[in-house]
Design a binder for these strands. Sequence first.
DNA 1: AGCATAAGTCATCACCCGTTGACTTATCTC
DNA 2: GAGATAAGTCAACGGGTGATGACTTATGCT
Lengths: 214, 214
Amino acid sequence: MTYADSMDTTAPGPRPAPAPGSAPRRRDKAATRAALLDAARLRFGRHGYDGTGVRDIAADAGVDAALVFRYFGSKQRLYAEAVRAEVPAGLAADRRRPLEEVTADLLHDVVFADWSAYDGEHPLLVMLRSSGRDHVRAQLRTRICDDYLGEFARRLDGPDAALRAELLGALLLGMGVMRSLVGSPALGEASYERTRPLVDRLVAALAQAEEDGR
Amino acid sequence: MTYADSMDTTAPGPRPAPAPGSAPRRRDKAATRAALLDAARLRFGRHGYDGTGVRDIAADAGVDAALVFRYFGSKQRLYAEAVRAEVPAGLAADRRRPLEEVTADLLHDVVFADWSAYDGEHPLLVMLRSSGRDHVRAQLRTRICDDYLGEFARRLDGPDAALRAELLGALLLGMGVMRSLVGSPALGEASYERTRPLVDRLVAALAQAEEDGR
DNA sequence: AGCATAAGTCATCACCCGTTGACTTATCTC
DNA sequence: GAGATAAGTCAACGGGTGATGACTTATGCT
């Protein structure tokens, strides 16, 4: 038995909406592709690469699993496209902006932003969870190093600028992990406004170059 | 053909070591259990929970996969036991030790310690990679909160002591992620001695309670 | 030496995985 | 309305999964 039998099969209007909850959705390649991507983001975000099956994603999107391969080629390519997130503009844009401003922006736009499309986690954290796969690990590494650490180091000076840049990266990354992955009590509930002065203090401590010797 | 045929089968000594690379290993429950745990740590460390099969672990240990279930009950319980790592003594021991000392010890004994038994990563980072599973996530959360964050907060004062404690935890955790999981260039190569003064500076910035208002 | 017991193996189950190709059906154009 | 084309479905494949229970074999005791 299909969704609409025993009624008169002559469709009366534009669409009779056979069942309220399971409208078959007008056939639309682009919309279906987007729905698959949205579902993939949520599933991969919550359960990781290995914990997510293409059948789960397709079911969430309301289509057959075969469409994943028709539209994306493979599960791996769907994953790569799903976790692709644009680095916030304004980081690399103006090289003159001081580190304090850039960090505050990142805190607001990355750590404390709304990533509910990825089940509450930034795509980088989502990838962290699936870093057992080599292709994920490689993507993660280049993303962090190229998009963020380089911009930090450029705004620091001194012989160990790279190291201090990575400490700043570690702090922000760790905050993200604490908030979403670990779900720690204080950071999980804290607001951007309450956290920012503390982070500012830490950035200031990192910004001053070598002064107290080794 | 078995491992030792055509030779005189009367074993001369304690063990003739039939083949150098594939000694059948004297039957020893405890030793086999330990070998399974070691192999599990490496496998889970490198490939995560879902990316590791019980057959892989058993093959590394040189035994049949069925023994995993005989000795541990399930893959999940083997995992739980494999990633169990003792929190370094001396953290909770003397409550009088100041935060600076405790942090330096943690930096040395956790972040920069030799975790080659877990494929180079602290068990908490190993768990991070498999946090798509709810039982891993729960274990990770209680471990971090109970073993570390509480000890940090105890040594801080002020209204937002918990928040500052979690920022310190985020820094250390992030450093671990950077070093092993991301493999960032500077932190990955840096030594404990070179990193410590920078971390000390950050801890000092966190230790001072609210002074500059909100 | 012989036997009881435990250590280890083997075959197997039921299920889920990513992927493929052939099939069906809705939508758009003339 | 008929036909073409693309969107979506279906069934199946080969292989890997965790887990189970019956079987074999080495070890230690008497």
